[in-house]
Amino acid sequence: MKDKILEVKNVYANVEDKEILKGLNLSVKKGETHVIMGPNGAGKSTLGNVLMGNPTYDVTKGSVKFMGENITGEDADKIAKLGMFMTFQNPIEVPGITLSNFIRSAYQNKMGGRIRIFEFKKKLKAAMEKLNMDPEYADRDLNVGFSGGEKKKAEILQLLMLKPELAILDETDSGLDVDSVRTVSAGVKAYKEETGGALIIITHSTRILESLDVDYTHILVDGKIVKTSDASLVDEVNRDGFEKYE
């Protein structure tokens, strides 16, 4: 399976000695869109954090392979350089560096080599337009004083600029108004179209999915994937909830 980019095998993971993931399996091929749904506390965000290499989470068993490399227990920066990206539910504020300079250095880190400032600014401006972002945000300190919606947009802006092989969207749509969800969703769609990258969308709601083609939907309950199906599962969950899986 050459185009398999992510393979999660029987992963068990703890946070502060509490077992959250209990034998999780998942595989993602190039360009696929996977949706992860599940009740609160099932381990959805833990999955994202484990994949991205958050050191707060301990993988006690199993393995994660990404882009052909074993990344179990690897540092987040190495995983990012291999082409994984995750949007955060609560992006942190970093005074002292502008959004633009931050993305530029992350971009250079990932792509290697330097990008000319003029060329970079042009790309950044185009991406910001897609997200209806006020260009003035580029020169503001990273996430400092951004509204919830602007922070989420700034995350999607980084997604558009960094063009990862696999993007994990962790509850990107939560707390956003209808218009912002639409904008964010359009941004995610642009990412898919421009890069052919794969997506893992962790979500409670379906609004963000409206303009995207979903290949697989997984139900995550108590640390395991209990059901996998196509996009139609999303509607079913919306109708019936998770009760019958719990």
Binding site: P55, T56, D75, D77, I79, I92, A106, N109
Partner: peptide, 15 residues
């Protein structure tokens, strides 16, 4: 904060 360090590392910055 560990969260802040992880956030920046997830964008490819070393620790």
């Amino acid at each position: 904060s560990d969260d802040a360090v992880f956030y920046l590392m997830s964008r490819g910055l070393s620790e």
